[in-house]
Nucleic acid binder design. Structure first.
Length: 584
RNA sequence: GCCACCGUAGCUCAGUGGUAGAGCAGCGGUUUCGUAAACCGCAGGCCAACGGUUCAAAUCCGUUCGGUGGCUCCA
């Protein structure tokens, strides 16, 4: 049931490092400034984060971006004053008295365990309930910047009040801060939404919110990814199937989606019948499985499906290609005997690892998610399943972390995470065991002793949503796709009109060689055409002028600015084809 | 969904109560050029939509739609 596979996660910070204390201290100075500039402010929490800090406030009026400068100035005066940080321990009653006008702080005090001491930290006249971890003095804050304001629910809970969160960052030197700000700018330049527009890959239109239109060039990349996966399927015993988009609601009641996933589904009412647009493929595959009697000799049966899925995502959470309302996955369901699970999982892990390294993702993190409190199936089944998954991971000698309670209600799973160019982490692959689906659809096979047995189902998605994977790839490669994925693999640049015929001759040779090639015969100077090709990140530029025509060569320039000089046409074709077949 | 902000030409943006602007892209010419932007000209907008305030609205107010940054980092 591949739920919530579009979530991101992030790492926790090293807790008591000097930069942590610096940021924590800066957060206190921020709180001081806000309290002074906005009398009546109620304080939330203000922790440091991986690359900065924030503080949550309930303020009498909304804080705007313009306010940030004013707040920064007020903060600077505290910093220039060089105020010392000092802590003190108080009794619980005293703490409550100090914070009597601060409802969020009172809540925190009430939730502190009896064994913990209550401490306050002060700099100048500002004192805050705080566990501690500060610089000696505000003077140590030499480089900070407030970045943005945002809404944030108290304790991340939608039913609690919405606070104003001010994000900022601080570093131990101005150079470090500047470097960080430049990094943020660089990251913006490789934002897939921006590159998608610049490289003509896809577009969004308000008429279909959160639903991408893939343009011809984006479609080339998309289909290349599909073909890559299909090639793996072909070699690994998968059978691709095509299943309906719309099913009577009855199916979703049977699969459990109606009870558990209704809010994320689209429904259509037609001629007194209610239909649901599929958010997942599994029920359809279960129907195919159960359409005939299956023998243990048939297993494992692996059904793959690139079917288009629709999931309603709340308006505030959609984002470019990475969180959309319609997408397709490299989704497959493996129906097998309990004994076959380990072998299947082992094969999948190999396939995943091979693929992630092909796309040059380093540092793949693997998580084994174990039984949650609410679950189906006996403890015995869970023991067996969890042990099987763990053993496979251990035998493969892969580092992984076990997370208790994070498994799906229908079975444990292995998830694969990769960091993108902004070191945000994305879940790509997942391998999920499912005890529930076979029950709900009463799936069976005839075993070697002639008895009817229940198969186990594995949900497989290696790159997950193709839409999101493309978004990640665009940012990962900053739009400079490997040659095998590049929408245009080579562009031919005739220097003057008289070279057009020769250029066309070359184009045909590359096309015949199976390459995606264009001739730039616009009435522009060569320099301009090179610039266009560079900006479009075309891997190979083949420049042809008098000299090349004379010698039957092409002059090859790479998008890395490297000049390969003149090559015979056949030689150039071979070099490019070589790059394609190497998946480079 | 919630909070803040934003929506002006294909793109990036200026214009904050008084006749809609620029650069790039596009189109038409000229130019025929050797490794990241030739030159001249032309065209292009119901200022997201709807409603209101005003003599007058891109500009002020409201609603709707869309987008951006956030909403797990626990005193």
């Amino acid at each position: 049931m591949l739920q919530d596979d579009q979530e991101t996660t992030s790492e926790n910070s090293a807790y008591n490092s000097s930069v942590y204390r610096l940021r924590h201290s800066t957060a206190h100075v921020l709180a001081e400034a806000v309290c002074e500039l906005f009398p009546g402010t109620k304080l939330g929490i203000g922790p440091p984060t991986d690359d900065g800090f924030y503080y949550d406030f309930l303020v009498p009026r909304a804080v705007t971006v313009e306010d940030l400068q004013v707040i920064e100035e007020r903060m600077r005066s505290s910093i220039e004053a060089g105020l010392a940080f000092s802590g003190r321990e108080v009794s619980r009653e005293e703490a409550k008295d100090i914070e009597k006008d601060q409802p969020f702080k009172l809540e925190i005090i009430d939730e502190l365990s009896e064994t913990e001491t209550v401490t306050f930290y002060r700099h100048g006249s500002f004192e805050d309930l705080c566990r501690g971890g500060h610089t000696d003095s505000t003077a140590e804050i030499v480089a900070f910047k407030l970045l943005s304001v945002a809404g944030a629910y108290w304790r991340g809970d939608e039913t609690r009040p919405m606070l104003q969160r001010i994000y900022g960052t601080a570093f131990e030197s101005q150079d470090d801060l500047d470097a960080h700000l430049i990094r943020l700018e660089e990251a913006q330049k490789r934002d897939h939404r921006r590159l998608g527009l610049e490289l003509d890959l896809f577009l969004m239109d308000p008429i279909a919110p959160a639903s991408p239109f893939f343009l011809p060039k984006g479609t080339v990349v998309y289909q290349s990814l599909v073909r890559y996966v299909q090639d793996l399927y072909q070699r690994s015993g998968y059978q691709e199937v095509i299943t309906p988009q719309i099913f009577d609601t009855e199916l979703w009641k049977r699969s459990g989606h109606y009870d558990n996933y209704k809010d994320n589904m689209y429904f259509i009412r037609h001629e007194d019948r209610e239909y649901g647009l599929k958010p997942m493929n599994c029920p359809a595959h279960a129907l195919i499985y159960s359409s005939r009697l299956r023998s243990y000799r048939d297993l494992p049966i692996r059904f793959a499906d690139f079917g288009r899925l629709h999931r309603y995502e709340r308006s505030g959470v959609t984002h470019g290609l990475t969180r959309v309302r319609t997408f397709s996955q490299d989704d497959a369901h493996i129906f097998c005997t309990p004994d076959q699970v380990a072998g299947e999982v082992r094969t999948l892990i190999n396939m995943y690892q091979q693929t992630y390294s092909l796309f040059k993702f380093k540092e793949v993190r693997i998580a084994l998610s174990l039984r949650p409190e609410k679950r189906v199936g006996s403890d015995e089944i869970w023991d067996t399943a969890e042990t099987a998954l763990r053993r496979v991971l251990e035998e493969a000698d892969l580092p992984f972390e076990s997370v208790t309670g994070e498994g799906a209600f229908y079975g444990p799973k292995i998830d694969f995470f990769v960091p993108d160019a902004l070191s945000r982490e994305w879940q790509l692959g997942t391998i999920q065991l499912d005890f529930s689906l076979p029950e709900r659809f009463d799936l069976e096979y005839v075993s070697d002793d002639g008895l009817r047995q229940r198969p186990v189902v594995l949900h497989k998605a290696m790159i997950g949503s193709l839409e999101r994977f493309m978004g990640i790839l665009i940012e990962h490669f900053a739009g400079a796709f490997p040659v095998w994925l590049a929408p245009v693999q080579a562009v031919i640049i005739p220097i003057a009109d008289r070279h057009a015929e020769y250029a066309e001759h070359i184009r045909r040779q590359l096309s015949d060689g199976g390459l995606r090639v264009e001739v730039n015969d616009r009435n522009e100077r060569m320099n301009s055409k090179i610039r266009e090709a560079q900006l479009q990140k075309v891997p190979y530029m083949l420049i042809v002028g008098d000299r090349e025509e004379e010698d039957k060569t092409v002059s090859v320039r790479l998008r890395s600015n490297e000049d390969m000089g003149s090559l015979a046409v056949g030689q150039a074709v071979e070099i490019i084809r070589e790059a394609v077949s190497n998946n480079s």
